[in-house]
């Protein structure tokens, strides 16, 4: 009989085109209806944007800290100060031996002259150092460790082993600091993820509630659609689009808020970095992060809407 099952099939390009056209119409229509009540829509978008801006800002901040830490971690190593009576050749021999150890990634030998030059540069004692008749600095081996060794259980015995070597005067560990930094970052990451989850849920509820009100306002329309034979799927579609718009706009505004924050802070951050002799520029949302934010917020809108629609949409069904 005349009943036609609405279904999509790739075998019928015209039907597919019709389907796409319908979706486009509903998407535009739901947007148009949203703009008919701009204040309500604006409130929802703002609430979603604020809920999303906070975790996004924290992720951006954390990424910047990580980048900053990455700069330091490259120098995170164990500096092995050799006994003062050892010269570069003996240092190189020791370096050869240490390189065989499984924990070591690479070794940099800092000669006494290089050490002095570096010291001269950073200490600001240039002229005074010229008074010295001989170079008082020892040869230093900078041991860069494999990341796996940064766990304390493996690091401590390794350091003990180094310290007992007769050629070694003393050690300075940057590794431990890097290790703590790593652990702290991981902790912050989890914290931000949890916060993001919570605020994402908040955004979901805000969108869900707006959709619920929308359904309430359009109760007559939904009922009439049901009377003339609309399927639940068809009736839902408009609200899913509305939810998607809320999510997308919320995500866009959140991205703008974070970008604005980064822009406001960037000059100050660079100024502070210069004081620490560091060339560091704060980095905002890149393309990938922006895409992720927008896709995520849109999905959030669709899910929030779907929950509300599932609970509140009534197509004048039989009782």
């Amino acid at each position: 009989m005349g009943t036609r099952q609405a279904g999509s099939s790739g075998r019928h390009p015209r039907r597919l085109a019709t389907w796409a056209e319908q979706h486009r119409e509903i998407a535009v229509d739901s947007l148009r209806q949203m703009l008919q009540q701009p204040l309500g829509a604006l409130m929802t978008v703002a609430a979603v944007a604020i809920a999303l801006a906070l975790p996004t800002a924290l992720v951006v901040a954390l990424d910047n800290v990580k980048r900053l830490g990455g700069d330091w971690q490259r120098s995170a190593a164990i500096s092995v100060f050799l006994e003062a009576d050892l010269d570069e050749t003996e240092g190189a021999q020791l370096s050869q031996r240490l390189r065989q150890l499984p924990e070591v990634e690479r070794i940099e030998l800092i000669s006494r002259t290089a050490g002095l030059a570096e010291f001269r540069q950073y200490s600001g004692l240039g002229a005074a150092l010229d008074q010295l008749s001989q170079n008082p600095l020892p040869v230093v081996l900078e041991l860069h460790l494999k990341p796996a060794i940064l766990e304390p259980v493996r690091l401590t015995p390794f350091i003990d082993q180094l310290e007992t070597m007769p050629e070694v005067d003393f050690l300075r560990e940057d590794a431990q600091w890097a290790q703590r930094f790593q652990a702290m970052l991981a902790l912050l990451h989890t914290g931000v993820a949890l916060l993001g989850l919570l605020l994402g849920l908040g955004a979901l509820l805000v969108i869900g509630n707006s959709i619920r009100l929308e359904i309430e306002n359009r109760r007559d329309e939904i009922r009439i659609m049901g009377l003339v034979g609309a399927t639940a799927r068809f009736a839902r579609r408009r609200f899913l689009y509305t939810g998607a718009w809320y999510g997308l706009f919320g995500g866009m505004v959140a991205g703008l808020i974070v970008t604005l924050m980064v822009w406001l802070l960037s000059a100050q951050v660079s100024a502070v970095a210069i004081l620490y002799d560091h060339d560091f520029h704060i980095q905002g949302l890149d393309f990938a992060a922006t895409s992720l934010l927008l896709i995520g917020s849109t999905l959030l809108g669709i899910i929030g809407s779907r929950i509300a629609v599932g609970r509140h949409l009534d197509l004048c069904d039989e009782r």
């Binding site: 329309e221 009377l227 034979g229 609309a230």
Partner: peptide, 20 residues
């Protein structure tokens, strides 16, 4: 879920029109 298809085969007219 078949109710919509059933309703498409029936034209309903109401006293209060039920227009949008």
């Amino acid at each position: 879920r078949r109710i919509p298809y059933h309703r498409r085969r029936i034209g309903m007219i109401f006293q209060d029109h039920q227009l949008l």
